[in-house]
């Protein structure tokens, strides 16, 4: 069977690689039976479009960041993936993204006509700013910070004392250059790829939250496949999740090197405890929104008892 997989990540972004990895692995595991053509780099639309394209069956499979799901499908549970500091390292994330609550999130997409296949990771978020390295939570105070305008992120950055601003993705470079924003919370590969560092020289490795996303498939298309094909797709995808996460981790290390060579000053964040303390209230507020969020938090706490 021939399938089309579309995503909005640009060439060089970890997710671009993951889509190709997935297509190759599924073909191999199905003995060449499931043949996937990948359309990346926003060729068929951006992240937000993917959900619609797949949901309506125009494209068979897609990838979109988890931030989109609370927003446009009202699946608040996905916010659990971005609670600050809950999952500290890539290695922990690799386990969490295949944990039972995570799989429950994937399954919760059925009523939107989507079959959630598996998670992947786009890159931990760090802090890029113009004025100097961030040494303590105090330093966030009043910084005009570009965020993706969703309630969870707005809440987190307000709790940290920053002044969060929703600048459209395409305007980040100009906004930083013209000082409309002082900083941006971003993943390392986007900082490198979009050359945002040209206008801001300090990266603080805050690692405040991850940026997971998921591969999903049109539900009817999925149901029309043979059990063998279904198994090849879902199992391959879920088995690859840890590899995706580790690939992103490796990519981040490489990109940090590139940024250093470009003269960007990169520093560790020494005040993690206060960051966690300041954002603690968010956990409680969000747990009330969906039982799955509480479940995910419990699961995460088992990691490092």
């Amino acid at each position: 069977v021939d399938l089309r997989l579309a995503h909005g990540s640009p060439r060089g972004h970890p997710n671009y690689t993951h889509a190709d990895m997935l297509a190759g692995a599924i073909k191999e595991n199905s003995n060449g039976d499931v043949n996937i053509t990948v359309y990346g780099d926003r060729q068929l639309g951006d992240d937000r479009d993917m959900i619609q394209l797949v949901s309506s069956g125009t494209v068979d499979m897609g990838y979109a960041s988890s931030v989109n799901f609370p927003l446009i499908l009202n699946k608040v549970a996905f916010d659990a993936l971005q609670l600050p500091g809950l999952v500290p390292t890539y290695d922990d994330l690799a386990k969490m993204l295949v944990s039972p609550p995570a799989i429950k999130m994937l399954d919760s997409l059925e009523d939107a006509n989507l079959k959630g296949l598996c998670f992947s990771e786009g890159g931990q978020r760090h802090f890029l700013n113009r004025n100097g390295p961030i040494k303590s939570v105090e330093d966030f105070k009043g910084l005009k910070t570009r965020i993706v305008p969703i309630p969870l992120h707005k809440e987190i950055w307000q709790k940290l004392g920053a002044n969060p601003i929703g600048v459209p993705y395409g305007e980040v470079y100009t906004a930083m250059q013209t000082k409309v924003i002082d900083g941006v919370e971003f993943n390392i590969s986007s900082i490198a790829a979009d050359k945002v560092y040209e206008n801001a020289n300090y990266v603080t490795l805050t690692g405040h939250y991850f940026w997971p996303g998921l591969f999903f498939m049109n539900k009817e298309k999925y149901d029309s496949l043979t059990p063998e094909e279904q198994k090849a797709i879902v199992d391959t995808c879920r088995e690859l999740t840890p590899e995706f996460v580790m690939q992103t981790k490796g990519e981040e290390a490489k990109q940090i090197k590139i940024l250093e060579d470009a003269g960007v000053e990169i520093s560790e964040f020494p005040d993690r405890e206060n960051l966690l303390a300041a954002t603690e209230p968010v956990f409680e507020a969000w747990s009330a929104k969906d039982p799955l969020i509480g479940e995910y938090i419990e699961e995460a706490k088992k990691l490092n008892p």
Partner: peptide, 29 residues
């Protein structure tokens, strides 16, 4: 057809405005 297929998508901004105006969590979806 497209509109009915995608009627499960929600308008987040309406909820944001509701929350901003009332100060309470609004989730009309």
């Amino acid at each position: 057809g497209f509109a009915s297929l995608n009627s499960h998508f929600t308008i987040p901004a309406i909820d944001f405005i509701g929350t901003a105006l009332t100060g309470r969590e609004i989730n009309l979806a």
